[in-house]
Design a protein around this nucleic acid. Structure first.
Lengths: 209, 209
DNA sequence: TACGACTCAACTGCATGCAATACTGTGGAC
DNA sequence: GTCCACAGTATTGCATGCAGTTGAGTCGTA
């Protein structure tokens, strides 16, 4: 009973390995070794990697298989604004009525984050939840798909909260103000602030390689 | 010598068949039949279709293979603004200096289109060339990838010039004004007009089905 | 030592094989 | 006539097989 496809799980697993570096940046992926390690055959693994290559998380090199792209800070600096604009679009295209149902939840997550800031717990995961909830009422499935495909790329460079607790608290404060603007039905202002929130993050990207 | 991958060609071929209806909307794709017809094995064909499913041109149904999505005008109406905003973003993120090199080319294509309007020739192809040239200096590769992946979806509903020659001429006129605004280095205005140009097109989508 | 041709194992890309699931069509109960 | 159960075929998803290419290592030459 193929309730779920093996290639889906494998895509997740390979994504995780690219993001945490178990598949090293700027190196080739050995299909045979990886398939053996994962206990599957090469076919579904290749299928998974083809999907990831389509999203830019891997690069397909004809005759040489798949490569994990090298880190490229210039790319990262372009990636953040891109995700920012996509999310802002999603926000602007959500009906204000539908958004009223999420503001309380947004604030609740913001509270969690504020509490966790000092403990420097897994803020990234909460941040994800916040953004996901924000867009949960958007009905433009294609836009949501683009966002979902692009965000993982950004995670490779995810230093969102390396700015330290003060930066994190600042970000949480912005989150709260966004929710406030949504309550006031001022979506343009909310999405503009959302973009600024994202773009500020870029400033905390390292400058070296 | 795998200079080119079979799955690339197959993805193009399958895309063409979805767009022109040789693979009927709202139906399943039979891998065996299609592979035989194309003279290849199922493996590279499946690989190609997985990529297309990732882009939304096909739908993956576990245990049932791949489906050609049904036409959905509500989706189309959301797709046009999406592509519009993505292109506008690409334009805004292109440096004005680099754009000076393309305005003449843009006008040349506009002239071609104006001439072809009465003949109702392949305006769609020229329109594509115009938009491609417009974004040719944009360096945000990920944004370009998203655009390239999304446009084919839109082509299924492509009635861009079914508005008749008068609408086509209007569109060409807008193209010219966009080029003019670019010459004046007014990218915000140019991209705003670009969005309006796209959005107007939606008005010509059928109302039935 | 630096460079280039050659050898051979390793790997990729595509084809084929196979087990499990999904669909079609028939027959029977109501 | 309609609905449901069942049998057989068709089809998918994954595993395996195979030919051609890539690339590491070796040897020989300058």
């Amino acid at each position: 009973m193929p309730k779920d496809l093996l290639r889906r799980d494998l895509a997740e697993e390979v994504t995780a390995r690219v993001l945490d570096g178990r598949l090293a940046a700027d190196s080739r992926v050995n299909e045979v070794h990886l398939a053996r390690e994962l206990g599957v055959s090469r076919t579904p693994l290749r299928e998974a990697m083809i999907g990831l290559a389509d999203r830019g998380l891997l690069v397909s090199a004809p005759g040489r298989g798949f490569l994990v792209p090298a880190f490229d800070l210039a790319e990262a600096r372009r990636l953040y604004p891109l995700v920012a604009e996509l999310e802002a679009l999603g926000l602007r295209w959500t009906s204000p009525e539908d958004l009223t149902g999420v503001t309380d939840g947004l604030d609740r997550i913001a509270d969690e984050m504020a509490a966790a800031c000092t403990a420097s717990a897994d803020l990234s995961e909460m941040d994800d939840r916040w953004h996901t909830l924000l867009l949960s009422r958007c009905t433009n499935s294609h836009l949501l798909r683009l966002i979902a495909q692009t965000k993982p790329l950004l995670k490779r460079y995810d230093t969102s909260y390396f700015g330290g607790p003060e930066r994190a608290l600042e970000s949480v404060e912005e989150h709260r103000r966004i929710a406030e603007l949504i309550r006031a039905s001022d979506l343009p202002a909310a999405s503009a602030l959302l973009v600024r929130n994202w773009v500020k993050t870029v400033a905390f990207l390292g400058t070296g390689d």
